[in-house]
Write a protein that binds this DNA or RNA. Structure first.
Ligand SMILES: [Mn+2]
Ligand SMILES: [Mn+2]
Ligand SMILES: [Mn+2]
Ligand SMILES: [Mn+2]
Lengths: 223, 223
DNA sequence: ATTAATTTTTAGATTAATCTAAAAGTTTAG
DNA sequence: CTAAACTTTTAGATTAATCTAAAAATTAAT
């Protein structure tokens, strides 16, 4: 079973998982090259290898999608990434904008025993510090339905449950304006011209948010 | 400062540190090949690279020794290895025979912020689960004087403070016969013929130990 | 002090991951 | 439906880490 993936292979599998919205949608060579900060030629070579190893389905010029075993691997890596992020924030007092890079390294540590013990140690968390769901040991994720703040209309209410990406500058800005997961939020006004919003938050009162920010914040679907 | 070492380079630096007893003693190409489970030809290539990077002193056919910066790197890696071992044993409930392999991976995670926060989280431990001293953030180690149990004579007393290597089979055997760090031990008899010993331990009474085991157990020098 | 044994280095290949440049295939626009 | 634009693949090189086989240097034994 010479099974174990190289660090590079793991990063490709994870990127394919994260770019492909549905398991169906094929991921393009260029999208992968962008995401992995490499060149399309490099990607072409690597997807041939992953295809040979049956981790992905691949037809020339038609992009790739993860196979069953590919998805399983991706979920294992994502599980590790997010559990380590919880550890870093909850136990080592890192801020949510500081953990992604370190978790990018820790997600490649190979020991299922370690992951499962870490999971228990952390109290089997279901979401990571950014609101992303943590797959369980069998790869199952429970994802509450959510929508973007930018998709909400005036007078709608909800609870902030996540952020769409982990750009440290975004996260630091959210810290600065005191926005964090779990807050009740109410849209008080939407400006059609630039889609900026005014929203009401507990204690903070009414604050102004640009489209750039509202399009990164996830809100519960039914509140 | 394109400074950062590759995983392979780190493993060489660590091996050189651990084989070289004193900073003076040169480490041979073959010793490194053995320790790193590779071939002498491979080692010859790598030490040229490390020498070029000024991490080691090297003269052809005369072996290598770590430079100041090489030693610093080695101590950083060892610090990480041992801190992670403490984490695994104290917080994830691993046994002392299960942690070395995982720590071999974790020691390569790059983030000084992480190491220092981990150190604090663990309560700034000074020894790892095998009794080995943990270098502090500046690379300083405080090593209490110790000797091997096999070097003790009849009626000598001491406290078990460490094990010389981390072979899981040795560690499991010590568990089985209830030997662990911190125990008071007294040599009751030494058999000259095979250098086996009888020793007295609290609660356990008198037990028999072969030379193979007594030569792996470290005891306080002055009790 | 030669010779034999051992150690170390060099020479030449291989594999994984990467790149640039060019060729081939697919999509989009007139 | 062709032609331009874009995407993807192939061809050929490069770098890090590794190997085997052979040459060179050192060390040990007569
Ligand atoms: Mn992350
Ligand atoms: Mn996250
Ligand atoms: Mn260890
Ligand atoms: Mn140890």
């Amino acid at each position: 079973m010479e099974n174990s993936l190289s660090l590079t292979e793991e990063n490709y599998i994870k990127a394919i998982f994260q770019i492909g919205t549905t398991p169906e949608s094929n991921v393009s060579t260029n999208a992968l090259a962008d995401s992995l900060q490499t060149k399309p030629a490099t990607v072409s070579d690597m997807i041939k290898k992953l295809s040979y190893k049956k981790l992905i389905f691949y037809e020339k010029y038609k992009g790739v999608a993860l196979s069953e075993s590919g998805s399983k691997e991706a979920l294992k890596i994502i599980r590790k990434h997010r559990l380590w992020e919880v550890f870093l924030v909850n136990h080592l007092n890192f801020k949510w904008d500081q953990v992604h890079e370190i978790a990018e390294q820790l997600e490649h540590i190979k020991s299922s025993e370690l992951v499962n013990r870490l999971d228990d140690f952390l109290g089997n968390p279901t979401i990571d510090p950014h609101g992303d769901p943590i797959p369980d040991a069998k790869g199952r994720v429970q994802l509450g339905p959510s929508k973007l703040l930018s998709e909400m209309t005036s007078h709608e209410k909800g609870i902030i449950v996540g952020v769409k990406n982990e750009d440290p500058l975004l996260l630091q800005h959210l810290d600065k304006i005191n926005i964090r997961l779990g807050l009740q939020i109410e849209v008080t006004e939407v400006n059609d011209f630039d889609q900026s919003m005014q929203v009401k938050l507990p204690d903070l009162g009414i604050i102004f948010l640009s489209k750039k920010i509202t399009s990164q914040i996830l809100i519960t679907k039914n509140s």
